[in-house]
Amino acid sequence: MGTIRYIFRRLGYGLILMVGVVVLNFLLIHAAPGDPAEVIAGEMGGITEQMMADIRARYGLDRPLPVQLGIYLANIARFDLGMSYYFDRPVSQLIGQRIWPTVLLVLTAQVIAIFLGVVMGVLASRRPNGPFSGFVSVFSTVGYAAPVFWTGLMLIILFSVIVPMFPVEGMSSARFRGGGFAYALNVAHHLVLPATTLAIIFLAQYARLSRASMIEVLGADYVRTARAKGLGEGPVIFRHALRNAVLPILTVAGIQFGNLISGALLVETVFNWPGMGRLAFDSVLRRDYPTLLGVLFCASGVVVLANLVTDLSYRLADPRIRTGGR
């Protein structure tokens, strides 16, 4: 019962946060100079004043800002994200088309990062001063420090141009026709480089964290007890130590989810991955307010949900949290 009440309370807070995100961004983007009519004029190669006025009137841009905000919030309450100024079609349709590529990219990157990060961290923790541990530290630092677009371009040049193993861009091949398993394979082939690029940044953090966490746990009394009972190294590490060491990783994974989505923006741009990040980036440049706000609204929703899932899995993994530490 407590858990359900907890979920609803968190969802309530999440909703307030999402509205806050939308209002703040609405005000921020409207504070920027220029408006969508200028962008459309630019795209058209110049338009008349009357056409500019018509565009502004059509999208309600000639009304006072508080009125525009009020209308927008009222529409949001009815789950109506409005029409894209640029693409002249419902924002929900654009987001519906783009959200799954982003979710696929982010989740794959997250799984790769956590899995490889933990494996590297665990292996490094067994000999904290050994060469592998040193390698993990260097790799982590470089992976974290290198700009995403650079890592992405280097991977493309290496694995798409010099050794043409993977495609350069897109989520599926432009020439591909068909569906089902063949399509899934085509997407998986396209996913390898972008997911790896995105994973490399976060992998570094998980590797360092799990290494530190494992070193600490491996020195704990219950691990010594387990070893004293005559348990093999495998069960000691994976059953006793890792389960405890993984808690901080779960916390970080939840926190990092938002960062993953923002990292996805750059990865999507470099790899031409048709996700929400690219849509958001283009929408800023195009002053396409409804699309940008729609993306931010959905992205903040995803982050709220991801954090909730993290908290719940935390409660699942550690009974002390469920019982409030009693």
């Binding site: 371009l153 141009v161 043409p164 350069v168 861009e169 432009a174 470099v270 790899f271 690219r278 283009d282």
Partner: peptide, 21 residues
Amino acid sequence: MIIRIVRDPSTLVLAMEAGEA
């Protein structure tokens, strides 16, 4: 005929080089 939109010019060049377009 397929018109593929690639926003990043570097990616555009690499895609052309790799024969994807």
